[in-house]
Amino acid sequence: MVEVLGKEEHEGMEAVGGEGKVVKWLAEIPADEYVLKGNSACAGCTAMIALRYALKASRATGRKTLLLVGACCMVVCEGVYPNTAYNVPTLDTAFACTASMASGVEAALKSFGRRDVNVIAFAGDGGTVDIGIQALSGAVERGHNFLYVCYDNEAYCNTGMQRSGATPPCARTTTTPGGKREKKKDVPRIMAAHGIPYVATACPSYPIDLYEKFKRAFSIEGPKYIHILTPCPVSWRFPTSKGVEMGKLAVRTGMWTLYEVEHGVFRLSPPSRRVVLRGDVVPVEKYLRAQGRFNGITDEEVERIQKMVYQELEWFKEAAARRKLW
């Protein structure tokens, strides 16, 4: 379908100042595991890959990790009391308050004079773009030193795939049986508009890019936001072995663009450069037809989404030229 992980991924990636060199191969990523075996993630879960690399990257900074998990799949993946699959101190939060609880954690650490901790708040798209956006907006506006990660499976997948603000147009969910009519809410751009020091988009199909973005985020003081597209085999209805390919297709079709905004400077990430800058775009139909959630989509709808993607890519091309997202 799409070529396997290759050189394209890290080509042109810049090293993070003071944080060591860019890893070239997966084998260079620390072998320590903080997501333990026996966790209750579904087969083929790509969100778990994102969490796994977040915790590895945090470890690589030499600092401690404090993880907050919103009400989402990643709480279920911990397993059931008295067990937990996460080998870092972890605070599970209510749905709307992952970012505000993280504010409290960060303030407490500050009060204790501890500067050796990476605070990571991990929440799904429902908990981020819908119910939690107020707490998130407030927390980043206040400038807390933490990383907020939204792993985006484009629906309320934990409750059985209901429509969220992040669901793409035409996707069938249990609450949009005829397909969603509206666009996907673009929270990374909303976060960038807050003027915070670091915003990035990522996808676990490009683990080195993902890992380097975590590392970069941890090297920056203040609020950081990473939005990760995590294809969900259960809700998107594709075979569990195809998660990585589905993420690659999302990027190659331009349905998902990888970039960073660091201190206001916009930078396309290597996997998206060929798509945005060179126009090397896979037709969106390939992506849509590969997933059960788009079953029944009409040719006109495919055409409409294709147009929307071209508009987006044009927008990113301009952003790349002026090196500013806004």
Partner: peptide, 9 residues
């Protein structure tokens, strides 16, 4: 929520 986060620490 922030109080809960801080007290949890």
């Amino acid at each position: 929520a922030a109080c809960i986060g801080a007290a949890s620490m």
